[in-house]
Design a protein around this nucleic acid. Sequence first.
DNA 1: GCCCTGACTGCTA
DNA 2: TTAGCAGCCAGGG
Length: 117
Amino acid sequence: MPSFFDQVYAVVRQIPPGKVASYGQVAALLGHPRAARTVGWALAALRGENDSDVPWQRVINSQGRVSIRNMEHAPEEQQMLLEAEGVEFNLNGYTDWQRFGWAGLSAVELEALLAAL
DNA sequence: GCCCTGACTGCTA
DNA sequence: TTAGCAGCCAGGG
């Protein structure tokens, strides 16, 4: 039985370049619409592991903007990484959820993904 | 098993 | 748009 963390990482790895998802969206996919905080914690744990293949920068909050309280990764850095992938931000630091928001996974894809863990 | 913590969320003002 | 508040879930000590 994979831990919640493993499931979070598996889902985040499915986010294609140029797209972004919210913490709540990832949590909802895993069946826990209220576990956004835990998802954020799971991604925070990746901070030290630079060799990880999890695109943590593609996960932002529901308001469409980055919200990092981390000393090692400034919000500007995450925004810069996303812009390099094609995601645009307006002057207020908000991204266009309608254009760059990730649609998520289908029930079938999700099931196969979690089964692979 | 209890308590604390955290890169969140939705609502109200 | 920003600020304050309470509810949520899982892992670590």
